[in-house]
Write a protein that binds this DNA or RNA. Structure first.
Lengths: 216, 216
DNA sequence: CGGAAGATTTAGTCGGCAATAAAATAGTTT
DNA sequence: AAACTATTTTATTGCCGACTAAATCTTCCG
């Protein structure tokens, strides 16, 4: 009785990502991330626990089991491969690929996944710079400071841009802030804004935008 | 309140295809085509009728409304574009593309659909030779006789191969029976088999196989 | 320490989509 | 016309996945 639904995959992905940050996932964090009520999250968590995909200590949060983590990573692999494929092979714009991949990831077969990965040359990064988990569950998960933490005068290369908010992503892309681009923080301005240099020309980023840019 | 689910699209597709043949769709035909019980089909038909997607005369079968037909054609367009794309761009084998497209068709956005169609050069036929409905709902729906109805001695070109049974499709593909291939019926053999010539060499097709090959 | 605030879980509903069993209807046959 | 058969419809049920409201647990603060 495998019967892992697409919604269950979404919950497992959310728990995985929260665990990266907090070590443990709380009901309300998962609920907020998925845009559902806390009661719905509790309900689904119980189902996932029943399937031995998460370990749940009531009132104390929960963590993925090895099986749950495997499924979460498979789903994330699907998602990021699809994002890269949509952007690269079909020319879908960066601020749309996340939402598109969100729906496709749950119905991607192993065969098509493999062909997409081969076509792309077995890539290890999606278009936002996030690592694509390997088939064996390996993830190269380095994390760099975001632009707000880079001292003025320092230079680097954009490693990753957050894909959590498509509107910000679009504005960053319009400014040319993409993985691989050289960037230098020139000064902090009032209003928590940042003057930066991006491959030749200067521009000003709001705090919101700067927070979503990770520099190595 | 659009709220057209993937399952509803499947029902509309089934009704559309049955209407092509019988003028009207019956509960049991739809149920058989989708592999569900007749009661389940009645249930769903009532929901579709409530949404004004089919017109239902109890005990007398049902037909698509214009809106229902539009949705059915959009879904079929998605399906056939995906089949062609999977085969052509990703090299998925012909006997797999149907099942793959079946899951993907329900989550294909207009944007990605358009990019796929453009990449393929706005095609009008899927890899089995079935017509791909245009965006405006136009379908070039010609139908030719199948091989069992071609008198011996007659020659023609394969226009279409049925995709209803993947096992037969695989055997036909292995023999080289694909749309566009020249074919000539040499003789009817005992056991309702057919000796045919296919682009140079001869082979024997069982009745099952011959029935799925349409010749123009 | 005790109680308020906040997080979490439980309880009770609802809609989508499937199933089965049983009742109703249509069509056919005698 | 009556009876039989096949089809269709009408309950009723079960699972998934969401919701609100109410109960319960933790924590934090005076």
């Amino acid at each position: 009785m495998a019967a892992i639904t697409g919604v269950m995959q979404d919950y497992l992905k959310a728990v995985y990502k929260l665990q990266r940050v907090h070590g443990v996932a709380s009901t309300s964090d998962v609920a907020a991330r998925l845009g559902v009520s806390a009661a719905s999250a509790t309900n689904m968590i119980k189902r996932l626990a029943h399937h031995r995909l998460v370990a749940h200590t009531p009132y104390r949060g929960f963590t993925l089991t090895p099986t749950g983590e495997r499924i979460a990573l498979e789903t994330i692999r699907h998602h990021r491969l699809l994002e890269l494929y949509l952007a690269q092979a079909l020319g879908v714009s960066l601020d749309h690929v996340d939402r598109e991949a969100e729906r496709l990831e749950h119905v991607l077969s192993d065969e098509v996944e493999a062909r997409i990965a081969a076509t792309l040359g077995e890539p290890t990064r999606d278009p936002h710079g996030d690592p694509i988990p390997a088939k064996d569950g390996t993830v190269r998960d380095v994390h760099y400071p975001d632009l707000t933490q880079v001292p003025p005068g320092e230079a680097g290369v954009v490693d990753r841009v957050s894909d959590r908010r498509p509107d910000l992503l679009r504005r960053l892309a319009a400014l040319g802030v993409l993985p691989g681009v050289a960037v230098c923080v020139l000064a902090r301005l009032s209003g928590r804004r940042f003057r930066v240099e991006l491959g030749g020309h200067e521009c000003v980023l709001t705090h919101d935008l700067a927070e979503g840019v990770y520099v190595r």
